[in-house]
Structure formats: C-alpha cells, structure tokens
Design a protein around this nucleic acid. Structure first.
Lengths: 240, 240
DNA sequence: CAACATCATTGGTCTATGCCAATCTTGGCA
DNA sequence: TGCCAAGATTGGCATAGACCAATGATGTTG
C-alpha cells in the first residue's frame, strides 16, 4: 500500500483505492490481475481483495465473470426520465433500446396495485412484465399494471414498441403527469437471474404513477434498474 | 432453515429471508439476537450471518451499533424533491428538519464546478457545505456551489435557514427550473464520519443544477443521501 | 452516593483455507 | 480438420478462528 491514510480506514478500502489507481485510464473490458494475484501482491487475504473488488463492481467501475476474470466496466448510461418513454429517450442519446417481453396477462389486482390505481382489490388489471435493454445489455426489470382489460393490446404493443405510444395512439390515453419514487435496493435471486448481475448488487428501485388530465391513474409501474450501469435524470420547471 | 428454495440460492440469502421473518411486526429499536447466537442457532458461521445482516442493514431494515447490538430500523423518510427546499418539504410532512453548517467560503471554481455553472475555471464561487438532519438524525451530506461572492450571505442564511429563501428574498434570484441526476454510490470514510453510517452502505448520489428564468445557472449541488433512510420523489406535469 | 476502573459482551476487521461452478485451454481422437 | 473430453484457471461461497473497538454492567473507591 502506498500512503498512510486515516488510522481507522480499513485495509480493504486502501486496497480499493489502490485498484482504482490501477484501472485509471484503462479501456473498458481490460482484464485486471486475478484475486489470488492481487492478494499476494498486496500481502493480504483473498477475502479482503474480494471485499474491495466487490465494492468497485457495485459502483460500476469493474465487472467480473466467473471462470474468466475481472475487467474494467463501461461507463454508466444516463436516462432522462420525463414524460418520454424509455425507448424514445434512449434513441435520442444514440443508444439502441430494446425490450424483452416476459409476461402480458390480465390478472386480479392485489391490495397494493389496487390502492395505487384507485381500484378495488380483485379488479382486473393488465400486467406487463418486461426486461429493458440498451445496446443488447439488460438494464432494468419492469412490471407495469394498467387498469382493466385492453383489447388487442399485445399486437398493438408489438407494432408500436413503446407502451406510451400504444396508450396514446390506440386507446387515446394521454398522460398528463407522473410521480416517480426512487430508492436504493439490493439484488435478490430474481434480479440476478433477469439482469445478469451479482447477488446484493445495488439497484435503483423506481415506482411510477401516471395519471391522465382528469387525474385518473392510468399506469402503476415498478422498475428495478441496475445501479452500476444507470443514472436517472428528472427535470422540473417552475411554470408548470 | 425452513424451506428449500432454488438450488443456486446462497445460504446467506436463505438466512436473510429467515431474519426478515424474525423481525416482521417488531417495533423499530427492538434488538435481535447477536451474530454469534444466530450463527449457532442456524448452524452456520458468523461470516455468513454477517453477510445476511449486512444486506438487511443496507436495505434499511436493520441497524447496528458496535458493542450494543443489532436492532430493527425505523422506516424510510420520503423526500418530495421539487422546487421546494429540503426544510420546507420536511416540515409539510410533520418532520423536524435541521442543518449543520460545515463550511461556508468563497473558493476558486475547479473545472467541474465551472463547467456546470458556465464559468471559467478559477472564477470565484461560494461553497456551502452542510449536513442535513431529520428529527436530529443525519440524512444527507450536501455541498452547494453558487456563482460569485455573495455579500452578507452567512448572516442571511442563519436568519432564513433555507438556501432558496435567501436566494429569493435577499438576492432576488428566482429558480425557474432544476435538473436532478440520481445514481447509487457506496459510502466511503468521509460519508461514514459525517453521516454515521457503515462503510460501503448504499447512498443516493444526487447532483442538482438550478437555473433562473433566463436559463442562467444559479446553483450546482452535490448531495449524498443515506440510501437506507431515504426515498426520493419527483413529479412531472405535461403542461410545463 | 457518585465517580471511576475493570471486565464481559457485541459488533468490526482480517486471515487462512477448502470446495464448488463457470470458463478457457489443451490435447487426443475420429 | 474438427470435435470433444479432461484438466487448469478464475471467480463464488462458506468455515473457523483470531484480535480489535465500542458499549454497558459491575464492583470498587473516594
């Protein structure tokens, strides 16, 4: 280790700083030394190395693949989250958005969904579950609930691609305002499976409630975005 | 452990689910068994117990104090982040906001601050560093940069309390729109010291750029909010 | 009775080590 | 040449144990 920092600074944090220096300026994708090699080089245990590496992975600075190695990660994607759709926003940034449909079904609303959409529990809602991808990489897991049954929804969605485009063009639903709640969460087994991330990786958990001009809820969505790859932007004007 | 989940589910995650069941319905502040006791009860190592507990702490479900024990944490605070100030918003929710001033000084702007405020590097900026508290508990570490030197700023701020109130009432600066960028980050030694959280705890890192009606930047702020105690809400209307 | 020193308890950090799982390389074989 | 099996490499998970640091209880002392 190079410098003596504050006395209470744990060793793994010093090592983390050290590795940060190692990867500064390296191209994304570049492999760094193996955990066992780092442990030997810095005269520490592999456990401590793993703790340092794990935090750098959680911060989106490194990535790792079992059996392959640990590498420098690409920079985060920024998402301007206004009234625009995920796809439109990505395209304006020159990125290639995509969606993978997991489920599209009419279900009975549970207590939580009903409360947010202003329905009674058990009322039918359309449930749309998708994986959002940017440049082929899974970025978010999203479940949207829309009130009622929507005829010909699947084919319309397949044609238009964007949920908001379908709502506007097919059903004449105009979204007038949205409320987004953002908090941190940690990845569980399902997130690991769907997003290809590590157990315990930090997520941005976003809940969105969208209403039409009359103030009637038209969409309630829960999205889990990868915290290591994603940045969220919201703009507010005072005139509104 | 009670049930057999998916084969690939790590043991610490099963234990995490187990502990979640243990604390369901308990009052905030209730102590749970010690790490050593849990390790023995569930026939595992303390390392594994700590990994489970650590994630629950990161998620804001548990808290812990060295030498004392591990306890059920209070629920998260929700912050409606619009054009309103931190203090005003907290008060409307019946919470008691407070600020602890760390530094208030005029400094030369570095490259990053200058770029965001539309200044040249080295131009003087007023730097305001504070800790935000809710009900006496540190919630965020905030550094705001304002262009130029502001006469009588310190006394005005002490009197008004809110930065936005001072800008409006004393300097006639009206904020017309803001852009917030939200991402996850992990706590380092400074965050640990200032916010009283654990190393590696997830944070919500928020950058705010505020402009006046003419589009001139008037504030650039970096805030680190405790991810375990905080939720961020943004509202967007389409009329704006 | 109050203040202080002592010690057990509890969480915080780190080591050394083993085995599993995914990946990649190598070499033999058809 | 092309394919496949076997082994080496690398990260993923877990154990057992040691020592430190903060806290709180206990008992002693002024």
């Amino acid at each position: 280790m190079s410098t003596d920092v504050a006395p209470a600074t744990p060793k793994y944090y010093l090592l983390k700083t050290e590795v940060l220096g190692l990867i500064a300026g390296l191209q994304p994708g570049t492999l760094i030394p193996t955990e066992r090699a780092l442990a030997e080089k810095y005269a520490t245990s592999r456990t401590t190395v793993r703790q340092a590496i794990s935090e750098l992975v959680a911060e989106g600075k490194l990535g790792r693949i079992q059996g392959h190695g640990t590498f420098v990660a690409p920079p985060k994607v920024t998402h301007v989250r206004q009234l625009t759709s995920f796809s439109d926003d990505a395209r304006t940034q020159g990125l290639r958005p995509d969606s993978r449909l997991i489920a599209l079904e009419v279900v009975k609303s549970d207590a939580g969904v009903a409360a947010h959409l202003g329905l009674d529990q058990g009322d039918p809602v359309t449930r749309l579950e998708r994986i959002r991808l940017i440049d082929g990489e899974p970025l978010a897991h999203e479940i949207a609930w829309l009130p009622g049954r929507l005829p010909r929804f699947k084919s319309s969605l397949a044609k238009a691609g964007s949920l908001y485009a379908v709502l506007a063009d097919v059903y004449g639903v105009r979204i007038a305002d949205v409320e987004d709640t953002v908090e941190t969460a940690l990845a569980g087994p399902e997130d690991v499976r769907l997003l290809g991330i590590e157990m315990g990786a930090p997520l941005l958990l976003v809940h969105r409630l969208a209403r039409d001009a009359a103030g009637v809820p038209v969409e309630w969505t829960r999205s889990s975005f990868r915290g290591d790859r994603f940045r969220f932007v919201s703009r507010v004007k005072s005139g509104g």
